[in-house]
Amino acid sequence: MAITYTSGEQVEVYRFSIPATILIPLIAVFLQAWVPLRLPFFSIFDLPLLVTIGFATARRSPLAGLFTGGLIGILQDALTHQPIGLYGISKTVVGFGASSLGIKLDVENAGARFLLTIFFYAVHEVVYFMIARGLVGLHMEWSWPHEFLSGMANAALGVLIFMLLDRVKQRT
């Protein structure tokens, strides 16, 4: 079992197999595009974001986190008609932040995961909002109730998804 040492604490580092690394983000992006057509309420979730956070906190490597987040975001961008980079930048920041925080904190229990997901959901939304309005010039309205509700919903779903990811992650 490989162990990294940070601030005197031991944290475990995990990795994912290549099929899991490719297929899980792909399935997340596919479900994000497909399910809201059948269940419109599902659009409040951001599955690719949850997968980004899940991968980043398990791997605990900032570089892997930012590249995984960036690629998932660009894939998500490519399916929209908006310029590529909106989700890419947001998820790059989230991937880097989640893996950096994963080194310092124990994110193995459900409560920590719930709070971590709410926090990074908020980070993602703020970065996305700023880029979309400031750089791309899109009209967006910030709605606190909507963001709060979405954050809670994503955090709840995130806890379940992280439990599923626990089953496919491997100790290095």
Partner: peptide, 15 residues
């Protein structure tokens, strides 16, 4: 046949 969406609330489009 509509086979999918964009997956983003900011991009209201379908495939």
């Amino acid at each position: 046949q509509v086979i999918g969406g964009s997956g983003s609330e900011l991009s209201r489009s379908v495939y």
